[in-house]
Design a protein around this nucleic acid. Structure first.
Lengths: 189, 189
DNA sequence: CCGCGATGAGACATCAACGTCTCACATGGG
DNA sequence: CCCATGTGAGACGTTGATGTCTCATCGCGG
């Protein structure tokens, strides 16, 4: 018996290929997704009941990667600003997928948003709140807004990189510096 | 003779209604768009050859509103930071439409992006560059990135408002303060 | 060598949106 | 009053993606 082990690795490969494709072309066909993954449409359909199931699986993948990045960033250790820096750096590989899911979720008109996003939002919001309470972050920008803005900047950055407007290596720096420091020069430096 | 004047006002009304609907549900049907505008699908088709034509028209509308907002903000007068503030305030009414077009354009895979966007990008980039050259903006964030980030924040803000996460009245303030000042408290204040 | 399971290729029906068409209506001007 | 124009309602064919199905093939273990 094969223990279905091959199916598992294939599934992950298909998922990541689909993520890479749908990130670039969010309206890609099931056939295109299958072709991109090097499998037939039939096999794709055997692993994911339909397009919805595929998107759901991508959602869980992106969510898991974000949570993993957040865990790796140790959001409760050290200055909040440094934690944000670590977080953005850690989440960079998943940024494109996150951008896809972020815009995709705009058309889930309130039906069922994966509960996982709420948990992730809560953790991010908590990080920003910690920054405020420690005196490092300003108080007139609500943690909820900072969370939302982080999503937006991650997506914008991913697209800017994809279109060649900014260098891939600058991605983390540009996002972190803008989110934390803003465009204005600081009086201190 | 009716001078076709009624068609003009109807066209504008349809366009704005479509903008409001597609902003919330980017996959809305032509039938839904027509119904939302209070007209029949046939009439909608008489005014816009197809869905593509409708999106193109929306693109021109959003572009025109952005250019108008930029004109009204007088981007060449006074401190660049104040100009950005005026710009965000002026572009707020068009923010939702801009958010729709911003994500919609992600799937124009390089074919034909309306030349108007390039002009708008150039004007925004020039504003940020002026801020750098005047010494007000930091130099390690390229104007191109600031432009891209502005789009992203405008979209994020529009969605956050639509979902009730932030108050509509705070929209301008939140975006401008984050874009210019960042999340960190400034040493000076 | 045989059989089992997974796969690829492709046919097939379904469905939703689209675009086009016709026809009836009603509204307003001549 | 009459007609021209714009409109609503709806039928119709087309298209593209989807989901399901069958069948031939291939690889691998027994």
């Amino acid at each position: 018996m094969g223990y279905r082990c091959l199916m598992a690795v294939d599934r992950d490969h298909v998922l990541r290929t689909a993520a890479a494709l749908l990130t670039r072309k969010s309206t890609a066909t099931m056939d295109e997704v299958a072709r991109a993954a090097g499998i037939s449409r039939a096999t794709l359909h055997r692993q994911f009941a339909g397009r919805d199931a595929l998107v759901r699986a991508l959602e869980e993948l992106g969510l898991a990667e974000c949570e993993a990045a957040l865990d790796a960033a140790r959001p409760d250790e050290g200055p909040a600003a440094d934690a944000v820096r670590r977080l953005v750096r850690a989440v960079e590989p998943a940024a494109a997928l996150l951008a896809f899911l972020y815009t995709e979720n705009q058309l889930f008109e309130g039906d069922q948003v994966n509960e996982g996003w709420n948990r992730l939002d809560a953790r991010l919001t908590a990080l920003f709140r910690r920054g405020q309470e420690s005196g490092a972050f300003r108080l007139d920008l609500p943690p909820v807004w900072l969370t939302e803005a982080l999503y937006g900047l991650l997506a914008s950055g991913a697209w800017a990189v994809a279109e060649g407007r900014v260098a891939r290596n600058d991605y983390t720096h540009l996002i972190v510096e803008l989110l934390l420091g803003g465009a204005l020069r600081r009086e201190g430096s």
